[in-house]
Computed example of a mutant assay.
Amino acid sequence: MRILVIDELCPPQLGGIQVRFKGLATQWAAMGHEVHITAIDHLGTSPEEEVIDGINYHRILKDTEYYKNGPFGRKISTIFSYTFKLKPFFKQQWDVIIFCQFPVLPQIFYKLFYRKRAKTAIDFVEYRGSKLWKVINNIILNAADEAICISNHVKQCVLEHRKDHLHIIPSFVDTTDAVSVSKSNYIFMGRMVEHKHPEHAVQGVLAYNKTYGKNMPLQLMGGGGMLNDLKTEYAGDGCITFLGSVDDDVKQQVLANGRILILPSEREGMPIVVIEAMAYGVPTITTDYPGNGTQFFVAEEQFGKVAQPDVDDIAKKIKEIEDNYEAYVARCNEIKSNYDTKVIAQKYLDIFR
């Protein structure tokens, strides 16, 4: 198959959506498919054309002011420029065109102006429910042949806008090399920013240790604006270790020694860190915020606990998992193969057969 992915960013910038497309595209290329990804170079330092792991990257526009600017966190004029620069790609013959949920406009443009169309899909990973976003969602979700949702929770939200050709393609990892070494550390993985609430992970573990007479360590991986303040605040507590941004080798080592993942975020779709932890037999505790889609996945698959967004309840949920720990590990090991990269990549393409 000849596959075109319309993303907005690409390596070396890797947000959650870009990690998802990179993983899928790498596997599709390994399966013998021809894969192209278009994107905006918002760093301004990357080559316009590049092949990485068999994927053909096309950074067709440079704008260092694009990202985190404008009313939607994106520079609107750049979205229009990017969309028009896609015309040479839209004129080509493709078996499948997959549109990233952002930056919204390209899929609308393609539907309106290109009659000899490839099969199209929108990859929808995060539902935003404001009045304005409901209008936008209604347009973009009906601009593609297929709507691919990252979780059942997102699919239920999308049902407000369309009823047919809905699919669930969850996050995924390569599960074959994930081997647990010990179960010695609690883990937080994510950016140190307000809506991720790393401080709740720290306080929840400290509350658990104090309440139940334990001395369990917590390792936190991730950079961000809160990191230095948190390191200063908890500098005297030997149970808490801030690792900052880490490479893949360190991340795999931490996961291999992980015991429970604590993810107290306000806003998530279906973060890959949950699947990464599951692959190592590490159950998850997440929180009951309305915008946290992870809670529904954890509850549906029953490999962890959903806590109230309260430090004491996080500590209580840690205790509940510890009291039946082997059962949660067994559940992780039972279901992890369903989220292997090869399985999900094939499932994705089967939609277009």
Rank of each mutant, 00 (worst) to 15 (best):
T26K: 08
W28E: 08
P71R: 07
F72N: 14
V35A: 06
M31K: 08
G32K: 01
Q27N: 13
L24E: 04
E34Y: 07
E49L: 15
H36T: 15
E50T: 13
W28M: 11
D41Y: 11
D63S: 11
E34L: 13
A30Q: 10
E50L: 11
M31I: 03
E65F: 13
E49H: 13
S46F: 11
I60H: 14
V51P: 07
H58M: 14
P47L: 01
A29D: 06
P71Q: 04
V35T: 01
N69V: 14
Q18D: 04
H33V: 04
H33D: 14
N56M: 10
Y67T: 03
V51F: 06
L43V: 04
I17T: 13
R20K: 00
Y67F: 13
N69Q: 15
L43E: 15
N56S: 13
H42G: 03
R59H: 14
I55S: 02
A39F: 01
S46N: 11
L43T: 14
H36W: 05
Y57F: 15
D53M: 02
Q18N: 00
H36N: 07
F21Y: 08
K22S: 03
N69W: 00
Y57T: 15
A30I: 01
L61S: 07
H33K: 08
Y66A: 08
M31G: 05
I37D: 09
G23F: 01
K75Q: 11
G32Y: 03
I60Y: 00
V35M: 07
I52F: 09
P71C: 04
W28Q: 04
N56K: 14
Y67W: 13
A25Q: 02
G70W: 06
Y67V: 07
G54L: 12
I40H: 09
G54M: 03
N56T: 12
K62H: 01
T26A: 02
E48W: 05
H36I: 05
V19F: 00
E50H: 01
F72R: 12
E48T: 13
E65G: 15
R59I: 06
K75P: 03
T45I: 13
K22Y: 14
Q18G: 04
Q27D: 12
S46W: 14
Q27W: 01
A30P: 02
G70H: 03
A29K: 07
K68G: 01
D41W: 02
T38Y: 05
T26V: 11
A25V: 07
H42K: 08
G54E: 15
Y57E: 08
A29N: 06
E48G: 08
Y67H: 14
